[in-house]
Design a protein around this nucleic acid. Sequence first.
DNA 1: GTACAGATTGAG
DNA 2: TCAATCTGTACT
Length: 178
Amino acid sequence: MSNKRLTRSFYVQPTLKVAQELLGKYLVRRIGKKKLFGKIVETEAYIGPQDKASHAYRGRITPRNKAEYLVGGHVYIYLVYGMYWQLNISTGKAGKPECVLIRALDSHLGKIASGPGKLCRYLKLDKSFYGEDLARSKRIWLEDRGVKIKPSQIRATKRIGIDYAGTYWANRKWRFVL
DNA sequence: GTACAGATTGAG
DNA sequence: TCAATCTGTACT
């Protein structure tokens, strides 16, 4: 049985584990009768409230970031720089502000969603997906298509675009690339 | 109320 | 290297 939708238990695991296991999984977006999908090839972990780069640093809760506190498997989507949407997936238990940013997909159409902003534009994702449950939604979810990833295929590097958080947090190797 | 900076991108 | 352009935060 391939093409298996990921269930709640997958997302509730520790965030760094989910961030790595998401690599090689497929993100599926249904628009009417059409399906867009791509293999996840780049992720980043954000683990509030201690993570200075996280929107939930020091336990902050705002209308924008509250989805980060939902139980694992919910969409946390927000606008950066006034123009680009960022697709995140909440992880861990309810009340824990932890999430994984989906940064890049390898797409079947030959188009490469090679950045978090471009990825959302390609999949037509916006605020209407805020808080969407990936374990239940009919328009967006994740599938395990049987791709096996060896630990040697995963590269851990610094996260991108968060130098403002100071060298300690900016240098955490919480970005994972296939 | 005003000021300012950000989990990015594409153009110059 | 820089501007586009909106949300949240830190001020007055």
